[in-house]
Design a protein around this nucleic acid. Sequence first.
RNA 1: GGCCCCUUGGCGGAACUGGUAGACGCAACGGACUUAAAAUCCGUCGUUCGCAAGGACGUGCCGGUUCGAGUCCGGCAGGGGCCACCA
Length: 859
Amino acid sequence: MARYNAREAEPKWQKKWEDAAVFRTRIDRTRPKYYVLEMFPYPSGRIHIGHGRNYVMGDVVARFKRAMGFNVLHPMGWDAFGLAAENAAFEDKSHPAKWTYANIATMKAQLKLLGLSIDWSRELATCDPSYYKHQQKMFLDFHRLGFVARKESNVNWDPVDHTVLANEQVIDGRGWRSGALVEQRKLTQWFFRISDMAEELLTAIDGLDQWPDKVRLMQRNWIGKSEGARVTFALTDAKHKALEIFTTRPDTLFGASFCAISVDHPIAQDLAKGNRALTDFIAECKRIGTTEAAVETAEKMGFDTGLRAKHPFVAGQTLPVYVANFVLMEYGLGAIFGCPAHDQRDLDFARKYKLPVIPVVIPEGEDPRTFQVGAEAYVGEGKLANSDFMNGMSVDDAKRSVIDKLEKMGVGKGTITYRLRDWGISRQRYWGCPIPMIHCASCGVVPVPDKDLPVKLPEDATFDQPGNPLDRHPTWKHVACPRCGKPARRETDTMDTFVDSSWYFARFADPHAPGPTNREAVDYWLPVDRYIGGVEHAILHLLYSRFFVRAMHKAGYAGLDEPFAAMFTQGMITHESYKDPDGKYLFPEEVEKRGDVAVKRGTNQKVTVGAIEKMSKSKKNVVPPEAVADTYGVDAARWFMMSDSPPERDSEWSEAGIEGAWRYVQRVWRMVDEAVPHLPGFGSVAPDGFSAEALAVRQVTHRTIAAVTEDLDRFRFNKAVARLYEFVNVLSDFKPKGSDGQWAMREALETLTILINPMAPHLAEECWQTLGATTMAVEAPWPKADPALTRQDTVTMAIQIDGKRRGEIEMSKDSDAKAVEAAALALDTVAKAIDGRRIKKVIIVPNRIVNIVTEQSGG
RNA sequence: GGCCCCUUGGCGGAACUGGUAGACGCAACGGACUUAAAAUCCGUCGUUCGCAAGGACGUGCCGGUUCGAGUCCGGCAGGGGCCACCA
């Protein structure tokens, strides 16, 4: 019996696709376009099967949409700048470019092995000057348009990687790559003014209705809009006359018992001059830092400045002003008023420094005269009390009322604050896109003229010591000022690599365009109709891209604001991890399972089987795609990746699972191979009539078309796969008799071939050829379900007595209620269950269920 | 600490807007074929009572709404995610 030989078939068909250039895409206005994109990879070395799911998922969509008649764009490129390359160069005394391009070559071959329907003619790498020169051009345009700022600010400094990190790249106080404790440093940096677009980026989230709710929520939280008020407190101090604070609870102003300012607040800094105690206090606060652990354990600390703030409404009342460790300069105005009764943090502080706790919001049912706040602040709803003109109001009314009053008095203003801060893009590294700016002693900061782009990285940089290789390069940074011609210095910072990935999807529309984008191509292809990637990019990459495309729009490089119409976050592939007796991780292929125990292959050393976790190089729980392709074939791997687990959830890679997929591949092949000699030729005309048996098979065929089409459309690959298992189960029981049955079998097998094509494209080609087709399956149109065959004529209805299932009846579809009721009541089991009780009512849900409700005796 | 999500057989998971819980796959078990194994094919497979027909129970736990709840509402427990001294 012929066995399907994936090892021969897969490379063969991949070559045919490539020779016929079937995945080469161009603008075609006669067909609807569909742009499917997986987040492009960072070329870190080799891919493992865990990376593959993402690309296979995109490929299934691409092939499905192509068959459905869409003009599909499915490109691939490389997020090729980044620190890892520089670190590798430092390690082996080579060059980041060498490491990067070697990895790209390896990974490209691996991706090709997976049989992805990618238009490789559009391949790009962000580290190529032909890419980053456009990024520099856009940077200059953004600079002209005011989207770029140069600011001195406290920055997150990674002492290991010797670079600045964006807030988003600091996780629990540590650098996201190095893991080193981040220090605060004051540096002048380049920023994108993303915070100016906070409101726009926030409201536009409402329109992203094809994004996962989770991602939309994360973005909303990240932008962090707070509505509140600024309030100016007059100070009883000759030098510092006023203190402006931000609050989201102006309604609690009568409960204020202190003010607090950040250690970085100008007043605190000023007071610290010549005040040893305060200087020490500030230093102590900075030492403790803001790591998660520190925040958990650190006490609220305050330093009484001696300043007193006058309450805006209560003549004669003053509040002490503290410098406090829990007030952040970066948020709001770096100053607050504290209302201990209604804020837990303020309460902790008040208890420590013995400040008054005055409740002003009284919960429903409590008496304002007796209501007390204990260990926990009251943050709920209620009626205002002890608050003069606000007494009796709800919290919301009180907020409006107090803001109104503050505004009239000229000491406050209703205002909105965002958590989102400007995007610092300066990195003190070599392997990134140079920022095209020049510092001149007389002209200041001067943009590199467009004609001098690209500012290329020098190839002869050295990587044998830490720090920025651009800065220590002997000649690169020394240039003439483009304005006055005097000696000047190039900017030696490079851009955050998130800039590179903020527009690559637009470049794919025409990666060879002479300018940053080809507007015709961008207008045709964008937005990305389906963007697929990990949820770990839910905030950074997606938010930056949304900002960047808006800026591109304003600069004329794109005609839209939202780059990704639909977003899908796929789950990870997980695998058991293994450790040898010394606690060293082992690769799965080094482990042999003998019954319940695992041993190191070829030895008797016991292996500890660890948790099922995300595949990662460091845990060695990875499976190389080459090994899988060699043993089972790529189609089996693709099939397995799409089966069982819903795509948004993690799925576990297992030998048993891939074997199951392999069996299915073999089964489909065998079925086609054995059936074909007995079938009419490809393209035979349908017979006039069909036997009941043949008709039944045709119905299954068409119902499968309808179901699989819908499942693929809705990203339910696991269900599509289940449907195709069922289909094959039905077909293997079908022994066609007569020419009508044989025709029905041919129809079924041709349909099956095209339906499995998105998941198992090589197998589909092989079957398609065996079935006698002269074209390739990749070019075959998606089958259409015939409504006459998908229609159900009879339905099975469940009969319930008092909500419990007691039987079922077979009825013709849409039977009238009387007939259904009569049929139900005629059942023996029903009569028995009713047991002579009176029937109170009969509920009939058409084509689904009958529920007979009886009079319950007694109770 | 805040916000959000999840919890269905031995396992991964189906069950569209409340309407026959457990599709499909994996594992397991029994059988056929085979000198034997693999492959393949047939069958069983939520728990429980029963010889059987059939019945009872069953979607993390407690309660509610409903003729009817895996699905809706309230509370609790466990697991996960994001943010985090954010005023």
